[in-house]
Every structure is written in C-alpha cells, then in structure tokens.
Simulated assay, not measured.
Amino acid sequence: MGVSDNVKGLILAVASSVFIGSSFILKKKGLKRAGAAGIRAGVGGYTYLLEPLWWAGMVTMIVGEVANFVAYVYSPAVLVTPLGALSIIISAVLAHFMLRERLQKMGIVGCVSCVVGSVVIVIHAPQEHTPSSVQEIWTLATQPAFLIYAAATLSIVLALILHFEPRYGQENVLIFLGICSLMGSLTVVSIKAIGIAIKLTLEGVSQMAYPQTWFFLTVAVICVVTQLNYLNKALDTFSAAIVSPVYYVMFTTLTIIASAIMFKDWSGQNVSSIASEICGFITVLSGTIILHATKEQEPPPAQGTVTWYISGDSIKSFEDEHLITICNSDVLEQ
C-alpha cells in the first residue's frame, strides 16, 4: 500500500518548517560572526557574504521553500499553510539554545498551542483531489466563485495601493500587510497550479504546451514580486515583532479561503471535521501570536546607572566586552 498524497504533503510541510526554522538561526549566527569581524549588515556591510554559516542558512532556506512548494502539490492549503507555524517553533527553540535568546514560559505555551493546533488540523485535514490536467485547473480558476474572489482581491489591492498607502501606509501596518496577504493568497493557488503541471509533466503527461500553464506562471511571478515588495516596506516601517504575527494570521487565513474556493478543499467533509480544522487553525494562530508577544526584550538600563564598555577592539561583539557598572546614583552625587 502506497503512501497517500496527504502524508507526502505533511512530511514535506514539516520538513520545510524544520529547514526554514533552522535557516533563521544559521543566518543570524553568520551575521553575528560577520559583524564581529567587519561592518554589520544593518549598517550596509556585506562581510556576511564571506561567512559560511550565512550561506548554510541560505541553502537551508531554499531547500525548505522547495519542500514547501512541493507540499502544495500533494496536500490542500488548509493542511500545508498552518504548518508553517512549526518553523516559528523550531526557530524559537534553537534560538533559546544556540543564540541564548530566552524562551519565556508564555512562549512555551505558544509553542505547545501551535503543536496542538497543528495536530488537530492534520487529523481532520481533507484528502487532496489532484486535477488531471492544467485545463481542469483552469476550469476551477474560472468558476464564478473564484473569479469573484480574484476580482475582489485585485480591487482591494488597487484601492490599498492607490488610495490608502499614500495616506496611511506609514501609520497602519494593515495597509502593507493587506497587500502582501491578498497577493500571497493568489500566489499560493498559482504556485499550486504550476506544481501540479510540473508533476503531471514528470509523469509523462506534458502540460507545457497549454497557455494556461504559462498564465499561472506569469500570475505567480507578478504576485510574488508585489508580495515581497510590500513585505519589505512593512518590515522597514514597522517592528518585526508586529509584522510577523499579523502577516502570518492574514496570509494564512486568506490563503486557506482562496484555496477552499478554487480547489474546493472542504468538499465532501462533514461539519464537525471543518469545525475541528477551524478550531485547530485558531489554536495555531493564537500560539503564534503568544510566541511573538512574549519574545524577551532587553531591559532598559536602570535610572542612574553608568556603564563603561572596556574593550581593546571596538568591533568586538557585545558578549566579548567586559562591563563595569555603578548602579547607585546616590554614590555619584556624594
């Protein structure tokens, strides 16, 4: 008995999360090493390009993204997309041990919530119904329900770009992330269509001659470029601690909606299974928000504290420096 498509997609999605979560740690360690030996990336340095750890992180991330791409071919978005939260857990746990970024108790609760929610989703996930050709996918993409969703999405994106971004883009994080998430939902369904076309082609049924294949590829490229552009704007304007959870919630929600409309992921499922998936999804979202909200922040220096940084080399990292601190301001006044 062969392995079902859902199991293949599940394995690929989990593997993707492991690779992507690990890549953040590898890249961060590489950046720290590069910053200790030269100009930091945050101030325009590029010495990290000579750091093997950074490249290891990049390769790991690429492997993870490829695995995630293939996972969409075998499993519905309602299963694959929420499992992306596992990469946050992997990153948080590895950061606790490798980067000494303390994982607080509520952060552990967030991790557990993500795992529990993911398990619930996996148990109740619908079976994937793989279309037999790109033409069949095109039929799904041109059904009235999805055309309405696509038209509404593009209309909202245009309104956000032309009207709201110039006025409120620097004040409201939902403007940039709304554009990212809406375009991201179209990215996922397009990539899924491309992945299925590649899979069928490798199985001997070439889909390259169909114009629909190239249409989906064009849409995917446009959506990805737009998505990355506005995600970078969001990260440059707002704190990553705000951007990450909000983007995850919006992107995941809209992706599941888009996929459910186009590919009818929930077709044939009973109400209890759908309700369980939604509850699992909400649990994952809650865990993600808790995990981001409880990230340890460096406490500000106490009032009246004087700190000397004694180091023979001003480029040394913070951990290498020796600190001498006078904490009582009354002593200074005497």
Rank of each mutant, 00 (worst) to 15 (best):
M250P: 05
G44E: 09
M262D: 04
E51C: 13
V78E: 03
G44Y: 08
L177Y: 00
V80M: 01
A95F: 12
L49C: 04
D265F: 04
P82E: 06
V116C: 02
K28R: 12
S286M: 13
S286W: 02
L231Y: 09
E128Y: 03
L26E: 06
K29S: 12
T218E: 10
G35C: 04
E165G: 05
S239N: 15
A151E: 00
V59I: 15
T255E: 14
Q135C: 03
I274K: 13
A258I: 07
S273C: 13
P211V: 04
L53N: 10
P52L: 04
M250R: 06
F146L: 00
I315F: 14
S155F: 13
A141V: 04
K233W: 09
R33E: 14
V112S: 03
F263H: 08
C223Y: 00
E277P: 02
G169D: 08
F97Q: 05
E277C: 15
F176I: 00
V119S: 07
F238K: 03
P166L: 02
T201L: 04
G178K: 06
D5A: 13
G204V: 08
I108E: 09
I278S: 04
A15E: 08
G45I: 11
G2E: 14
W214R: 07
G44C: 05
S329D: 08
G287C: 10
H124K: 09
V119H: 08
T60P: 04
I261M: 02
I39A: 10
F19R: 01
L53T: 12
C279W: 14
Q269P: 09
M58Y: 06
E165D: 13
H124W: 09
A151F: 09
G280P: 06
L140A: 12
R100C: 00
G84L: 07
S311P: 01
G304R: 09
V7T: 15
S23M: 12
V78A: 15
I123M: 12
V189L: 00
F176H: 14
L231F: 10
T201R: 04
A241G: 11
K295E: 15
N68Y: 14
L94S: 03
L49Q: 09
L291W: 07
Y149I: 08
I156R: 00
I121H: 02
S185E: 00
Q104C: 01
P299V: 10
G110T: 01
D320I: 04
P126I: 10
L254H: 05
C279F: 15
I148C: 07
V243N: 05
K264F: 03
E65Y: 11
S155E: 03
K32I: 13
T47V: 10
V224K: 07
L291P: 10
G64D: 02
D313E: 07
E321N: 13
T81F: 08
P76Y: 11
I137C: 05
L53Q: 14
L140F: 10
A71C: 01
V78G: 11
F215P: 00
P131A: 03
S272D: 12
L200C: 05
V188G: 00
F97A: 06
V14L: 11
S155D: 00
S311A: 15
Q297A: 06
M98E: 09
G184I: 02
S311D: 12
V112R: 07
L162A: 07
Y72T: 07
E165T: 05
E101A: 07
Y230C: 05
V109E: 00
T60C: 15
I123C: 01
T142K: 10
I39N: 07
P211I: 11
Q297K: 12
F238V: 02
W55N: 11
I148A: 10
P144N: 02
